[in-house]
Design a protein around this nucleic acid. Sequence first.
DNA 1: GTCTATAGAGTGATAGAC
DNA 2: GTCTATCACTCTATAGAC
Lengths: 185, 185
Amino acid sequence: MARVIAERADVVPLLTEIFRTYGYEGASLARIGAGTGLGKGSLYHFFPGGKDEMAAAVLAHIDLWFQQNVYAPLRETPDARRGIAHMFRETKRYFLSGQKVCLVGVFALGNERDRFAVAVKSYFVDWAAALADALRRDGKDAATAMALSEDVVGAIQGALVLARAMDKPKLFVNTLARLEARLLA
Amino acid sequence: MARVIAERADVVPLLTEIFRTYGYEGASLARIGAGTGLGKGSLYHFFPGGKDEMAAAVLAHIDLWFQQNVYAPLRETPDARRGIAHMFRETKRYFLSGQKVCLVGVFALGNERDRFAVAVKSYFVDWAAALADALRRDGKDAATAMALSEDVVGAIQGALVLARAMDKPKLFVNTLARLEARLLA
DNA sequence: GTCTATAGAGTGATAGAC
DNA sequence: GTCTATCACTCTATAGAC
């Protein structure tokens, strides 16, 4: 029977989608089982800590993705403006042009925030810091860069909320375009 | 035994705080009972529709508050700029300078959005429309007014997410100040 | 007796843990 | 698959105001 496909690493992307779609409380083990094709036994074999450990693994996975695809390019692309443009492109892609919600944002608003406070906080702090770094290299002074980066990271989260509330994904795309224009003006 | 205090209207503010703190799924009847001091009997007496009706009452209560204290002043204050300044003042007050989260935003991100889609949508649509109205009376063209108002309503939601995620309420206050400066520039 | 507010035991279903 | 806890919810039984 056993020994089919799964490794822990194969399961995490599936879990990510499930948590992103249903939220932490909404992601029941039944739903997770259906979405991953794994029985409860396998799930608890990979994640002895249960749902809590699954969510932690998902947050770590998201963090890694943003570190590699957004924060590092923001910091390391020699032309800061290209790094910023890259951030907007990847952000649009990641959230499927506003059709997907930000799992970290969902966790931040829920009372599961306390449980995952460190991961939730560092996601936003790192993003804002990386963007501020790029803005500073683009010539902004430190205070302006920090304020602007917080505005932009916040506006992205807010646009996801509005796009979902209004059932209008285009609002997310339009907001991203205006934010980018503001930063690269 | 009976005949003590409560009316439905007394319960709604308590429910608001509970749903805002725990979200819809996280607000169990046990928690609601503890938070309101009412037994299930009383709760189901006031809200025969159960949790669903409680949440609907809370959303209606929030909507009324914003209609009276934010949207109507935005539309009706003769000096549009004073109406906008009033909006920022009331918004700051309502969210306790960033210490409180927006219940409608929480509902928008969760999968309970579908159940309360109409209320959730109209909260944001009405806010953006009222603000766009004021901006138009302040001399902006229709397209600019609409885009700006969506940016601002979204940025407010995003600032609440970030303030909570970073445990930094000041971020909300600072963001509001920058938004107001941008609108009244 | 009737109506309203209350309390809480008890229902089946389902949750997450193991 | 089995466990126990907890979920939303129902129902019966109350007490006082009319």
